[in-house]
């Protein structure tokens, strides 16, 4: 068996696209598991919300009380299941709540151990300077999302949004979810103190879910703008091609 030796590239050819290993396997696994889980949580959550589409502040709240928000009736093309079935929606929601919580926990442990958080998500004080924020905002508006000097690094808006999702929004979803469980309220009454009562927890659950939905929309738009084949591919294989302008 012979191995073909590649002929050396002509000197005047353009440089081959540079690829770097950007996403570790734990990050990629959690990303896709989380993508499916959050999709199911939002769909089944909207069915559950359809059962009583009114949100209150405080410990109690029912038909004769004053809601701060009456949501729309969520249409069948965004709910799980499509046709209203509270029991089945709860089955989806409460099973995947376990997936959401325990996969976040596992991802956090691995990401501390492999220094993903420290290397990629640590927000430094100088990142938050007005000059840097203004610079990164201008770069965003010009559709340049990578620092040519260090294309692997996340820009400040990426860092802040990932930190928001991983350390605030998803943990708030989990804790407000637990605060709605009457058995958990008996066992861990601090959950109610933390959020100001069960109906407040339910309202905050909805607000955090809206925040996550907003993140997903912006995330998808930016993936499309940054080059979806390269971005989705890197989240599948880990290997990311450094964009021409950043090379």
């Amino acid at each position: 068996m012979t191995i073909a030796t590649p002929s050396p590239a002509p000197a005047d050819a353009p440089p081959a696209p540079r690829t770097i290993y950007r996403h570790r396997v734990a990050t990629r696994l959690w990303h896709w598991l989380n993508a499916v889980t959050i999709f199911i949580m939002i769909g089944s959550g909207l069915t559950i919300l359809n059962a009583h589409p009114h949100l209150y502040w405080g410990a109690y709240g029912a038909n004769f009380d004053h809601p701060w928000l009456n949501t729309i009736h969520w249409p069948s093309y965004v709910t799980i299941p499509a046709h209203y079935n509270l029991a089945i929606a709860r089955r989806w929601h409460l099973l995947f709540a376990l997936v959401l919580a325990f996969s976040l926990l596992a991802y956090m442990i691995v990401s501390v151990a492999n220094r993903h958080f420290a290397r990629d998500l640590r927000v430094r004080l100088r990142d938050l300077s007005a000059a840097n924020l203004w610079h990164d905002l201008r770069e965003h508006l010009a559709f340049r999302f990578h620092d040519p000097a260090d294309p692997r690094a996340y820009n400040i808006f990426q860092k802040l949004s990932y930190v928001l999702v991983i350390f605030i929004l998803i943990p708030v979803m989990i804790l407000t979810g637990l605060a709605m469980s009457p058995a958990m309220d008996a066992a861990w009454p601090w959950l109610l103190d933390l959020f100001g009562g069960r109906q407040s927890a339910r309202s905050i659950h909805f607000i955090a879910a809206s925040g996550l939905t907003g993140f997903i929309v912006i995330h998808l738009v930016l993936v499309i703008l940054a080059g979806p084949i390269n971005e989705v591919g890197s989240m599948l294989t880990g290997r990311w091609r450094v964009p021409e302008e950043a090379a």
């Binding site: 059962a51 009114h54 109690y60 038909n63 009457p182 109906q199 339910r202």
Partner: peptide
């Protein structure tokens, strides 16, 4: 005590 309906509302 607080009564929690499966639909989401609560009454004390």
């Amino acid at each position: 005590t607080r009564h929690d309906c499966v639909e989401g509302w609560s009454a004390i």
